[in-house]
Nucleic acid binder design. Structure first.
Lengths: 151, 151
DNA sequence: CACGCTCAGTTCCTTGAGGGAACCCCTTAA
DNA sequence: TTAAGGGGTTCCCTCAAGGAACTGAGCGTG
């Protein structure tokens, strides 16, 4: 299918998609995040083709988002764990959850709830400005060319 | 390639991916968001195949994320605009930008900067709890089964 | 010791989606 | 009358996703 690679574009969205834009990748990350972290488990949970799963895992490891760790020598058993880079990608998943819960509900309510430990409430994420802490969303920003902009 | 449809999974991430998980879809949304909102413009900007662009636009319109609007009758000219549902997907893009700027920088610095209008600073988004306003990220939540969980 | 089981992949074949170029229709401009 | 531009559609080719079968290492059990 000779898919276009996004990694070389002068766009942080494209570069992020280069890492987790392939189908299945975000779902693999979600699984690892919730503790479904071995090959067989992920395959069974997602119903993904074993071939594609092997490819994706290799790619995510090379991208530095997951780490393949042997947690048992005899017999050799492996698990995948999120790196620091990968943990921050979970932010993306949490925003997807918030959007999906709101706009792609099938009428049965959210399949999963998230309780915020520090306040104890079932809640969801919201976007704030890292600088002033106020809401920062689509209409709240002005877009400027940055130093890495293309010629 | 008989791609697996994610829409029926009991997972809000999968359902979100069903809408914008195909390659190119987030980049199309980004373009529309920044004002590159006509077929020819998007095609030229992204270098996407015209066939795939037509498919994606139709899908995004059917999903209620974009609206196809005729803004000129003679000659007939169309533009694509974000719906309310689509505008909230831009949240996702802003998180991708924040991640990409941090973890997929090519050394030249961010290609695009975002100035938060209300505080005037060039900034990026951060995730907070919609309930208490404190930081809410991967390690800050406890996951519970919700009403829409699968049997 | 042979048999079976689990984990973690790899190999193979088939199908269909992405890429790319060419083509089409409509309208205005020269 | 021809050209140009916008907004697609049609066509063919290639290569990735799906799916099932196979491999191989290491227990565990009679």
């Amino acid at each position: 299918m000779q898919r276009t690679r996004f990694g070389d574009m002068a766009c942080s969205i494209a570069r992020t998609l280069d890492v987790i834009g392939e189908p299945w990748s975000p779902l693999i990350l979600r699984d690892v995040y919730v503790g479904i972290d071995r090959f067989e488990q992920i395959q069974a949970d997602l119903g993904i083709s074993r071939k594609v799963l092997a490819e994706r895992l290799k790619w995510l490891v090379e991208a530095g988002v997951l780490e393949r760790r042997q947690y048992e020598t005899r017999p050799p058993r492996y698990e995948y764990v999120l790196t620091a880079k990968g943990v921050e990608l979970v932010d993306l998943l949490m925003v997807m959850v918030a959007w999906g819960d709101k706009w792609a509900d099938d009428g049965a309510g959210p399949p999963v709830l998230y309780r915020h430990r520090s306040c104890g409430q079932v809640s969801h994420v919201e976007l704030r400005c890292a600088h002033c802490g106020e809401s920062m969303r689509a209409g709240d920003v002005e877009i400027l060319p940055g130093p890495g902009a293309a010629a």
